[in-house]
Amino acid sequence: MLEVRDLRVTFGPRRKPFVAVDGVSLTVGANETVGLVGESGSGKTTVARSIVGLVRPASGSITYDGRAVPAGTSRPGELQRAIQMVFQDPRSSLNPWMTVASIIGEAWRTHPSAASDLDRLLADVGLDSSVAGQRASQLSGGQCQRVSLARALAVKPRLLVCDEAVSALDVSVQAQILRLLDDLRRRHNLSMLFISHDLGVVHQIADRIAVMRRGVLVEEGPATDVLGAPQHEYTQSLLDAALELNS
């Protein structure tokens, strides 16, 4: 379904570029959740931003159902709709002055064919219809993250790219959002690329896991293999640094 091939992303001057992503290939199948882990700066966000078209890769290809996914705004509306991203900080990705209803309304104006019932959508992400009239600035972190999710789901995407989407949330709220993502994936047949620094959370939610270091994928495989019996020493070092609650 989503296929990333030899993705290379550079920043900075053309003469002396900084290579943030250096030949990454990965696929996310229908109804599959792929976890992407690695220490900060390893290039996870850059991969995610390339997939949703916020970054223009230097080379490589991204295809979705066999069709090329061009960078940025040159992307056809239908593809824009199919791939949606949820960011780490729900507050900075929502306009604080806009009401929840207008945030969702804006998404529906861009993709009118997806427009449907607001109360239903809010209920889907566990929000009461009474928040529709509230501004983003009046909501809690967990509520904001639900609104971001609702905005992404409003346009009926096929693939959700979640970049540290639960990291800023309190544990009890994090558990709610994880449950919600898992339910949504079942009910709406979603695929997910799930980025997180919390190996426990990724282990829980992902079918497959890819491990990234300094712009390169060092290991990839079924979640239970990668975190249960890592093959690469870098994965092992990430595991060594991770604390368990009971040990």
């Binding site: 009890s172 994090q174 919390d198 426990g200 282990h203 249960g228 595991l239 604390l243 368990e244 609650l245």
Partner: peptide, 8 residues
Amino acid sequence: SVPAVRTK
């Protein structure tokens, strides 16, 4: 709500 790391 705290998942284990080494086991699913």
